[in-house]
């Protein structure tokens, strides 16, 4: 009896992987192969031979500049998104605000974190563009000329400010459960041992939240680094961040070298991979105390 049971289990086990075959096939065809193709293309010349020239061409000043501004915008929007989202989440979860505001804030965060792309750009043009509501109100009510300060919605800060509209809510959505996981007893135990609120945050709460914070930061970084639609609708091709450059290249070979396009895309994968690798490494270091 027990013997036949084990045999039965063996056979089902050995064929069980067939059940995920469709999924693996799909992932291979529409996720992994296309990506690999780009990676390989980055190391080939038009004749299909191996070369490092495409990669070397990435180090042209104009392309390096594109990477640099992309990284800056992604870092700025991820960092500001993390900080602002964290502050709002702390205010809502621990700051003594009435409980009933929590549910609408979470719902709104769900909406806003998915409100990216073309319409988001329209919203910010209508608000902070040259004739946008806030620009006009500042001018008419306070006599403050926003565009006189050098601000432009089509600039670094304009784009960062726009990205924050989906970055902050994403942070709120991810970090709120983590804040809920902070036990009241930890705070009270720290207080009993003489720690100030600041010491509690520095020595207990932040180290505990650190993996979640890092992970969200990496996610937010990748999120804005790969964003095309918002930037394109907002700035056209006037701000040459990497995804826009790549977009233009795919559409019309603006780099006059298709294989440089692969290298450009490869560079993007590399940067988001490095960001996530860095995250995994730091998490492994800071999570020794976890199961």
């Amino acid at each position: 009896m027990s013997n036949s049971l084990t045999v039965h289990q063996r056979t089902t086990l050995s064929w069980a992987w067939l059940g995920v075959l469709p999924f693996l096939l799909f992932a291979l065809l529409f996720l992994i192969l296309p990506t690999l193709n780009i990676v390989i293309g980055a190391f080939q010349n038009p004749e299909g031979n191996f070369t490092l020239e495409n990669i070397a061409n990435l180090f042209k000043p104009s392309i390096l500049d594109s990477y640099w501004i992309s990284i800056k915008i992604s870092l700025a929007s991820a960092l500001l998104g993390c900080i602002a989202g964290f502050l709002i989440a702390v205010a809502v979860v621990l700051g003594g605000l009435p409980r009933f505001i929590r549910s609408p804030i979470m719902t709104f965060s769900g909406v806003a974190s998915n409100f990216a792309g073309v319409p988001l750009a329209f919203a910010f043009i209508a608000t902070l563009g040259r004739v946008g509501l806030v620009t006009v109100l500042l001018r008419d009510w306070l006599g403050f000329n926003l565009y006189g300060t050098g601000f432009n919605i089509l600039s670094f800060w304009g784009l960062t400010l726009t990205y924050l509209f989906f970055q902050i809510p994403l942070m709120i959505l991810i970090i709120t459960p983590a804040l809920d996981g902070l036990k009241r007893e930890w705070r009270e135990a720290a207080a009993m041992l003489g720690a100030s609120g600041f010491q509690y945050w520095r020595m207990v709460a932040l180290p505990i939240l650190w993996p979640a914070l890092l992970g969200t930061f990496a996610l937010l970084f990748a999120n804005s680094f790969g964003a095309v639609a918002t930037a394109y609708a907002l700035t056209g091709s006037s701000l040459s961040i990497v995804p826009i450059l790549l977009f233009a290249q795919i559409r019309g070979d603006v780099l006059h070298d298709p294989h440089l396009g692969y290298a450009l895309a490869f560079g993007m994968i590399l940067i988001t991979m490095v960001a996530n690798g860095l995250y995994l490494w730091m998490r492994a270091r800071s999570e020794r105390w976890m199961k």
Binding site: F30, L31, T35, G226, Y262, I269, T272
Partner: peptide
Amino acid sequence: LLPLVIPAIVIVFGYIRL
């Protein structure tokens, strides 16, 4: 989780080539 890391534009680029 890969699609969160690999930018969409890279994926389409791969489609167009493949």
